[in-house]
Every structure is written in C-alpha cells, then in structure tokens.
Simulated assay, not measured.
Amino acid sequence: MTITLNPTVEEIRKIIFQLPIQDQIFLKEQLEEKLETLQMMQLAETGFTEWNDPEEDIYNE
C-alpha cells in the first residue's frame, strides 16, 4: 500500500487495521485523550464569552 501526502480517512483506517491489536489500542487511547482535551478546551471557551466585550478593546489602542 502506498501512503500519499494527504491520505483519506479510508486509507488511514486500512493502515490502522493492519497494525497489531496492541498498536490499535494505543492509537485509540491517544485519539480519545486528544479529543477529550479538545472538547474540554471548547467547553471552557464558552465560560469566557463575557471577556469578548468590544468596549474593552479601548485598552488595546
């Protein structure tokens, strides 16, 4: 199988499924951790919306 510079999800899936099960488990854990962190960061952003007040931009001038 040839790996392209911009592989599709299907190509990546096929490569992953060829890995030993322990490597697949490791990748799954790493992906879950990354996604959980991303979701937490996105959720945290909603708590800071009051800081996006255009009137406060006067201090940037």
Results as ranks from 00 to 15, higher is better:
1 M>K: 08
1 M>C: 05
2 T>I: 09
2 T>E: 12
3 I>T: 11
3 I>A: 11
3 I>V: 14
3 I>P: 01
3 I>N: 09
4 T>H: 07
4 T>N: 11
6 N>Q: 13
6 N>I: 11
6 N>V: 11
7 P>C: 00
8 T>D: 02
8 T>F: 02
8 T>G: 01
8 T>E: 03
9 V>T: 14
9 V>K: 14
9 V>D: 14
9 V>L: 15
10 E>C: 04
10 E>P: 02
10 E>Y: 11
11 E>K: 04
11 E>G: 05
11 E>R: 06
11 E>Y: 03
11 E>V: 06
13 R>P: 00
13 R>D: 02
14 K>T: 09
14 K>S: 10
15 I>P: 00
16 I>Q: 02
16 I>P: 00
16 I>E: 02
17 F>G: 01
17 F>R: 10
17 F>V: 02
18 Q>V: 08
19 L>H: 03
19 L>F: 10
19 L>I: 01
20 P>D: 13
20 P>I: 01
22 Q>E: 12
22 Q>Y: 04
22 Q>K: 03
22 Q>H: 01
22 Q>L: 05
22 Q>M: 02
22 Q>C: 01
23 D>V: 03
23 D>L: 03
23 D>N: 07
24 Q>L: 03
24 Q>K: 05
25 I>L: 15
25 I>T: 13
26 F>P: 00
26 F>M: 14
26 F>I: 06
28 K>R: 13
28 K>D: 07
28 K>E: 10
29 E>K: 14
29 E>C: 10
29 E>M: 13
30 Q>N: 14
30 Q>T: 11
30 Q>H: 12
31 L>Q: 12
32 E>M: 11
33 E>R: 15
34 K>I: 13
35 L>C: 11
36 E>P: 01
36 E>F: 09
37 T>K: 15
37 T>Y: 13
37 T>M: 15
37 T>D: 12
38 L>A: 10
38 L>M: 09
39 Q>H: 08
39 Q>K: 13
40 M>V: 07
40 M>C: 04
42 Q>K: 13
42 Q>G: 02
42 Q>P: 00
42 Q>H: 05
43 L>D: 08
44 A>F: 09
44 A>H: 06
45 E>A: 15
45 E>C: 12
45 E>D: 15
47 G>C: 10
47 G>R: 07
48 F>Q: 02
48 F>C: 03
48 F>T: 04
48 F>M: 06
49 T>L: 08
49 T>K: 04
50 E>A: 07
50 E>F: 09
50 E>M: 08
51 W>T: 00
51 W>S: 05
52 N>H: 14
53 D>Y: 01
54 P>D: 07
54 P>L: 05
54 P>Q: 08
54 P>C: 07
55 E>F: 09
55 E>N: 13
55 E>T: 05
55 E>G: 10
56 E>I: 04
56 E>R: 09
58 I>F: 15
58 I>D: 12
58 I>C: 05
59 Y>A: 03
59 Y>R: 02
59 Y>T: 05
59 Y>Q: 06
60 N>I: 09
60 N>F: 14
61 E>K: 06
